[in-house]
């Protein structure tokens, strides 16, 4: 009984990890789509991972960013960069996803 409980717990832990991993992969795929096509980040930023060559904002390959700092920037904007959150250009979920994507590709 104890062994089966232990195996059950192991199964859940394993499943959770698998789920997280898939979730992150999904976010990377969706994040790329938002970056290149929905939000238009690619029009202004260089990011090797996205194949983008925009030269208005900072080259994202040259900076290290945390997910929170990207979220802040995407939500409230700066200078010519729109406030994607405040102006309802992107949904909160989209901002979360593209921020995850950028934080995991910028400066790499």
């Amino acid at each position: 009984m104890k062994i089966s409980k232990f195996l059950l717990i192991l199964f859940f832990i394993f499943s959770a990890n698998i789920q997280k991993s898939f979730s992150d992969d999904d976010k990377m795929i969706k994040g790329l789509e938002i970056f290149n096509e929905i939000a238009g980040c690619a029009g202004c930023h260089i990011l090797k991972a996205a194949g983008s060559e925009g030269n208005v904002g900072p080259n994202l390959d040259t900076v290290s960013l945390t997910e929170d700092s990207v979220k802040e920037m995407v939500t409230y904007g700066l200078g010519v960069m729109p406030a994607y959150g405040e102006e309802n250009i992107l949904t909160k979920e989209q901002i979360d996803i593209v921020s995850f994507y950028v934080a995991n590709t910028a400066g790499k």
């Binding site: 980040c41 930023h45 960013l65 910028a106």
Partner: peptide, 13 residues
């Protein structure tokens, strides 16, 4: 309709 991004280096150490 779509716009640009300008991720300044907010978090650069």
């Amino acid at each position: 309709t779509a716009t640009l991004a300008g991720l300044a280096a907010t978090a650069s150490v």
